[in-house]
Design a binder for these strands. Structure first.
Lengths: 207, 207
DNA sequence: TTGATTTAAACAAACGTTTAATTAAATTTT
DNA sequence: AAAATTTAATTAAACGTTTGTTTAAATCAA
């Protein structure tokens, strides 16, 4: 019935999990913050972990589809595809920083195996599609013979490193702790420019 | 008295925190695994969080000193210094993957503010020293006009991304989940080579 | 004998979850 | 269309565990 109410709980959970982690967030915290009755969470999601699984499943599909369809595209050059991936990832992360932080957490923790595997699987899928693009570029002799999965790791790793937390972001923006860096277009441009320049010089054969 | 017993508890805690996180690890877990009495942990460290703080303080200093002394070095070229930093970081991470994972966690979480700040501070210090090296190289016109703190973020971010968990590592090694990638010299060489090549082509002015 | 270490037991608080009662909505029957 | 009935949503209270921490007694070393 109330799909939007479920979504509201999920969104609140993302914000809390991103800040305090899954174990660090109590169901009571969540209920209070989402302004719903405590029992509703188990009523909707079965359990706290059930909520977490649904949360991840809900949000994880987005990037996979984006990269997969880029991989299939016949119009764009490989370099253009790489650039789009870089732009999309930064855009997406700045748009949903909390969720990506939750994903990062789950890649670090190995105790909730199902979710750990799910997070890794998403990363593997994206890596594979990215690899295809890079290898086509190598065959066409526009790219150097690089290590494709590590190139992808560098792109994602750079973004993850810079956007670890609001405070970390603001060590780059130079602004105070209360500044919101996620809506700073200049910051976004700076990050995209750096990654593109780095990856370009790494990939492209000088002519 | 038993400084090695304290150290034993700390080491056990690192392993557990890396796997399940701080909140996900109970003091009883820890006591059982370290084979000490439950009450000893509060007796030694005052509280669970006290243990965590001491743990971080104990281990965090290492890299800071390493980069700071490199910054002061007069013999090596800037490029050599960058290479040493890359090698040292990979080496260090492969040697102590659990601790670095705990540090990554703490950079993600914002609820334990003291520790969050401590982890960020360590990152900032290292960034500053790295920046100095890069800027010297830019002045000497051996490096391009790059974005120094983001270059550092790319180095650390790549390492963090690849070494997020054992399973993630083994998506790169291609080995099964039980394989220990941290002692794989080939894997280490591959990672170092990729980062060096990427950073070199990004930094160096073609002659 | 003194002070530090170690122990098992107990503490209150917080945890995720369940229950049983109540209200709201939807469906069926009249 | 109204009433009756069934299903779904919501609630406050309670459940049994587990949590971090403390206590007070016991053991050890100096």
């Amino acid at each position: 019935m109330s799909a939007d109410k479920k979504q509201h709980i999920i969104n609140t959970a993302i914000a809390l999990f991103a800040e305090k982690g899954f174990e660090g967030t109590s169901v009571r915290d969540l209920a209070t913050r989402a302004d719903v009755n405590l029992a509703m969470i188990n009523y909707y999601f079965g359990s706290k972990e059930g909520l977490f699984q649904q949360l991840v499943e809900d949000k994880i599909s987005f990037m996979r589809e984006r990269i997969a369809e880029l991989n299939d595209d016949k119009q764009l050059t490989e370099l253009e595809k790489v650039d789009i991936i870089i732009e999309s990832y930064v855009e997406r992360f700045l748009d949903q920083p909390e969720f990506h932080r939750v994903l990062q957490q789950e890649m670090l923790f190995t105790n909730r195996e199902v979710l750990h595997d799910k997070a890794i699987d998403s990363f593997i899928q994206n890596t594979k599609n990215f690899n295809n693009i890079i290898e086509k570029g190598i065959k066409k002799k526009v790219f150097k013979k690089v290590d494709p999965p590590l190139v992808f790791a560098s792109i994602i790793g750079t973004i993850n490193q810079v956007l670890k937390s609001r405070k970390v972001c603001n060590t780059f923006t130079g602004k105070g702790d209360n500044y919101n860096p996620y809506k700073d277009e200049q910051f976004k441009k700076r990050l995209v420019t750096h990654i593109k320049q780095m990856i370009h010089s790494h990939l492209l054969i000088q002519s």
